[in-house]
Design a protein around this nucleic acid. Sequence first.
DNA 1: TAATTCGCTAGACCGA
DNA 2: TCGGTCTAGCGAA
Length: 804
Amino acid sequence: MAKTDGFLVDVDYESNSLGDSVISGFFRTPDGLEQFFFPEFKPYLFAASLNSNALEAIREKKFGPDGFSVLKIEETKKSGKTLMKLFFKSTKELVIARDELRNMGISIFEFDIPFGKRFLVDHPIEPYCEFDIEFIEEAGKKNMVSFKPKKEQHVFAPKMAAIDIETYSPGRFPTPQKDAILMICTALRDKSIVYTTHQKGSGLPGTKVFATEKEMLSGFFSDLREMDLDVLITYNGDSFDMPYLTERAKLFGLKADFGFDGSEIQLKRKGLENAAKLKGVQHVDAYQTISLLSRFGAVSLVKKDLESVVAELFGYAKKKVPPAKINEIWDSGNGFEELVMYNREDAEYTLRIILEYYPMLLELSKIVRFSLFDVCRSSASQIVEGLLLIKSQEESAFVPNKPDESEVHQRLLQSVIGGYVKEPVPGLHENIAVLDFRSLYPSIIVSHNISPDTYKGIAPKGTKGKNISPEGDWFAEDREGFFVSIVSSLLTLRSKYKKEYQKIDKKDPKARLMFGRQWALKIILNSFYGTMGFASFRWYSRECARAVTAFARHYIQDVNAEAEKDGFQALYTDTDSAFLKIPRDKTHENVREFVKKVNAKLPESMELELENFYRRGIFVTKKDPKGGAAKKRYALIDYNNNLKIVGFEYVRRDWSTIAKRTQKDVIEALLKEGDPQKSVAIVREAIRRLKEGKVPKKELVVLTQIKRKLNKYDSIGPHVAAATKAVARGREIEVGSVIGFVITKGNGKSISEKAELEEYVKEGNYDADYYISHQVVPAVIRILNELGYSEQDLLEGGKQSKLF
DNA sequence: TAATTCGCTAGACCGA
DNA sequence: TCGGTCTAGCGAA
């Protein structure tokens, strides 16, 4: 028996010569990346308790065309019920057997958990932890005997590199069958290398020049293998770089073989998306990661192309070389260094994005026991599901099946009422306090023991108890719910991490790791409520979701009622926050006392926090005057002159910069300086510039996402019209892409007819009337209405303010 | 196929 | 040409 130690970096499975599915773990040991096999671990599923006849029938059953049998059957208990654990020799056989078992009328469970994930769920191990390993080597294969977490753990510091390719694209989207790879860049933390076949590259620092593309690819592949990476990063490599490299390699009789032991890239489909997997090496697609983060609201991005992301995250305006320019440079050789720079920056920034989020990804990986490859491509439901699977395994709890289509349909018919939103008091207000509940939904789950396994039904009228929601849903008090123990430990862990982070010096490299840790927990906590009400979720529970929001509405409305009782004015409320106007006879200290008083009555895990005090704030009426004041839009300024603009056009990407900037300037003049006349002057100036035709195109662009195929739209809005026209010109527009359009002078009747993709519009070609009356004026008019101005005042001028 | 509901607004669409 | 209704997108929480 031999010994070593190392970090677990991936779990995978493969078919051996006998057709058995065998799990292997990849460990980063002192000898490099090593693969250890776990031949004892077999694929399995559960079947409902069977009588002896049925059990015999399964034992005798010959499955599939080849007539295989169940490997073995064990009896187990889950949540107190008896289940049969059926083992198979391979995942292939399990898949065949599950259909036939169902046809036999047998209820089966946990039949759709990927084998690699199954292994990680079943073993009390975290990926990227350090282990002491004992193994036996036979016929060149290392079989694991035991592996135990080391007492002292080091943080896994992976070898990382990012790659990016540039291709030839003569006026169309590049196709690997025809268009060459011109350049490839590999970026490491301390250097980057550009591979190219252009002779202009020779002599340039950090470049490797090859005579042919075939030699370049082969050189690039062998360099990658030599780097012996743990993590390989791309930007949209799942859909572009990896398939492209694979295809080009194939054309030259090569293989994109830079995975473990010279294995090739495997291109998979994950739902509708592509995924490129490498054995033993984690392919982290930064584009997928950014999508994940923006889904979870961890970053807010207007567009997800590399340039926009780099601008948002690092404040750097990276220069883009458009495809046509790439070809021009390539053909002429002029400006070659610019192309090299572009390629290099793309790879370097791709690496930087992942370095930025690595601590958070790593923590997510550990919590749900997904590899980095899986975690960066996961959805919210997969992450929560992963966590619940682990918990179920630990407690031998029953795992519900995913619902079938008709069940999902049924669930969708009944939705759950959400948070309470109070109509604000419109107008300009002074001296406001904003209070909010910390982690409201998770803390309600914990406080009232909300979980499917503690649900007792609707409480009879008159029943008293702390776990009866305002709508009557009743949860047990004598035992802790399955969801509750998870959420509660996540909440505790997060506040511990947050405290540690607050204490540590922010320059300490550990600080980023700690921040990432608490952030990962926040993401999971925030998704928990949502998944309970998600129709396709295994642990869907309408009752739980309904109780959470009912309690939430109760608590926030209670804060308002108490505040009014104490002499504050409840200005506005949205779900977990209350805006209070502090009357003249009250102080900030009175607000703090009020918060304390509320907290004294709240359950232990709930807390109302003082978010901030604001000097001034404005709420406006809706466009439809009958509709009253607008919810979810307001602006505040605190005592340090920090402006907070929420919900207004200013924060929306589907409004032009000219409208957004004018709106922001107006709000600022009003809140910061209290100067309505200046606000009016700002609007008039914008209108004047528009009329003179001097506004540059980039201030006029409206960004919108194309969410479906262009022919699937019932209503042809400006963005669809602009996209359709662009496609007619030969531009490719993918579903999900964000396009920018401008309303031109054109001679169409409708706005759509005048909408054109930004790239086809000349400077100065814009419809000034449209931008005045459909962009600038609507963005500011409701704000100025509150101060007594009308639209006429903006367009003509002269009249003075009556208010303020 | 991949967390929820609440809410605002624009612009097309449609019939009088 | 109008006003109501519907489709669509995005943001707040």
